[in-house]
Amino acid sequence: MTDLDLSFTLNGKPVRLHVRPDARLLDVLRYDCGCTGTKEGCGEGECGACTVLLDGLPVNSCLVPAFQVAGRSVETVEAVAPEVTGPLNRTGTAQCGACSPGIVVMTRWLREHPEVLQDATLRQFMSGNLCRCTGYDSVISGVASVLDPKETAGGEGTSA
């Protein structure tokens, strides 16, 4: 197999690499670009831990062949602003953290595209990101507090 000569934009900066032709975008990000924030949870597009933005749309990077990425723009968790991660931290969105990068990328995308919620609830919107730790309440309240900073921590339906 001959290497693939791959150029694309990663978090706003151009990169040029030689990768295996059968590499996935996930592999390129993690093992060639050092962006290990993007996680592999299942390798089958079910868990969403490897979510990145490809030309501005969320995708599971485990299902994207690297050869389709040439010339395109990829944004990962490493490029997400503190305005997103801060509120998520306060509501307890991260526990073990393995699903967190995917949730952070989805939250960032939603913040930039709030119109998506016109026909979907937050619970539907986040259903592509499996989390085994939180039971999702702190994820949902975290995303809500990023979208509306007035939203108090603790959020949806919980009391203590």
């Binding site: 597009g45 969403g48 979510t51 490809l54 749309l57 969320p58 995708v59 599971n60 299902l63 994207v64 989805m106 998506v116 919107f125 259903s127 592509g128 990101n129």
Partner: peptide, 9 residues
Amino acid sequence: VGAIQIQTR
């Protein structure tokens, strides 16, 4: 058909 991450691809 799947989550948004699948719908976009």
